[in-house]
Amino acid sequence: MTAIEYVRGLFGQEDDILTGVRQSIVDRDMPAISVSPEVGTFLTMLVKMNGAKNVLEIGALGGYSGICLARGLGEDGTLTSLELEAEYAELAHENLKKAGFGDKVQYRLGEALTSLEQLGAEGAKFDLFFIDADKVNYLNYYNWALKLANPGALIVGDNVLQSGRVFDPENNAENTLAIRAFNEQIATDDRVDSMLLPIGDGLSVTRVK
C-alpha cells in the first residue's frame, strides 16, 4: 500500500452523489479527470476553514469539484465556475442541482482568461480560487487570482505534481514546464504564503497576504 492509497482509504470515501458524478462523466464520454476523492474532501474543508463566501472555480468538467467546494459554503455563499465547454457546464450544473446546490452556482462560458478579465472589470472579489484547467495558463490564472483576491484569500491549484513529471529533469513537455514555473512562482512570491501537498496528483495551497 502506498501513502496515497492509505490517505485515500481514510479520507477519500465518496458518497452516492459524487460516485454519480463520476459515472455521469463516463456516460457522456467526457475526460475522467475529476479531482481525487481525498482532494475533494480537502476542498470542502478549505472552504469551511477559510470562511469563504465567494468561491471561483476555473474548470468545471462534470461538477465534482464544484460540489465539494459548494459543500463548504455557508447559506449566503456562492460559487462562480468558469468553463470553456458548454456541454461540461451543462452537466456540471445538472449535478450540482442534484446535490442541492443549483442555486449557489453561476457558470460563465468561454475562455477563462476572457471571463477573468470581465470579472475584473466588474470589480468582483473572491475568498477562494480553485484552478483545475489547462496547465499552460496556470501562471496566468494565478496572476488573475491575485488581482481578484480579497485579503487572506486562498488560491488552490490541482495536478501540480503531474504524476511526478515536474521533478523529472528530463521531462520538458509543455505542461510540465508550465506547472514547474507555477510551482516555482508560488514558492518564491513574497505576496503570498504557499505549500505544495502530495495528495491526489499534487495540490498547492497559497494564501494571499
Rank of each mutant, 00 (worst) to 15 (best):
R180Q: 13
E184I: 09
G77K: 09
C68L: 11
L82I: 07
S34A: 12
G202P: 07
I179G: 02
S34Q: 12
F182L: 14
F167K: 03
G100V: 13
F126V: 13
G157H: 03
D127C: 03
R8K: 10
F130V: 06
D132P: 13
T114Y: 03
F182S: 11
S204I: 07
L56S: 12
V166H: 10
R71D: 12
V160R: 03
L196H: 01
M1I: 05
F167N: 08
G66T: 11
R71Q: 15
C68V: 09
G12L: 13
R28W: 01
R207W: 01
S115M: 01
E75M: 03
G9Q: 13
L196F: 00
D76N: 15
P37A: 05
L109C: 06
L46P: 05
K97V: 15
L73G: 12
L69E: 07
I25R: 11
A86L: 06
R8N: 15
G51F: 05
A99Y: 12
V21F: 03
F126K: 08
K104G: 11
K97D: 14
S34T: 08
L113D: 06
Y141T: 10
E174S: 13
R108V: 02
V26I: 14
L177N: 08
G74W: 08
S163G: 00
D16P: 01
R180K: 15
G40P: 13
D132Y: 12
L61G: 06
M45D: 01
F11R: 10
L196M: 14
A112E: 11
L197K: 02
